[in-house]
């Protein structure tokens, strides 16, 4: 592909392309690991892909990247065991 001779409205996807979106958050989702069953619904539904799931053997460890989490609360809403609680951001 030869180089285009004009500017293009193209970009490449990368983490944090719109800045530190965690600064938008006024409610903070927190995971109660005693309740979490590692089903992955929060990971599936998160519109900003900030939920991560690590597996070690048969155990799943769910975590949230607070640098970019906007605090929309969808994860808490879809969690089938109510393991995610929204607390006030202070």
């Amino acid at each position: 592909m030869e180089r285009a001779r004009f500017l293009l409205p193209l970009s490449r996807p990368k983490i944090g392309v719109h800045g530190i979106t965690g600064s938008w958050r006024f409610r903070r989702p927190e995971i109660d690991y005693a309740k979490c069953v590692g089903c992955g619904l929060c990971w599936l539904y998160c519109p900003d892909s900030v939920v991560e799931i690590e597996s070690s053997g048969e155990r799943f460890k769910v975590s949230i990247d607070y640098t970019y989490c906007k605090g929309c609360g969808i994860c808490a809403s879809v969690c089938p065991v109510k393991a995610i609680r929204l607390s006030e951001e202070v």
Binding site: P9, L10, S11, R12, P13, V17, H18
Partner: peptide, 8 residues
């Protein structure tokens, strides 16, 4: 992947 038309 490329993004076409992202907010400038």
């Amino acid at each position: 992947p490329l993004i076409m038309g992202n907010v400038p």
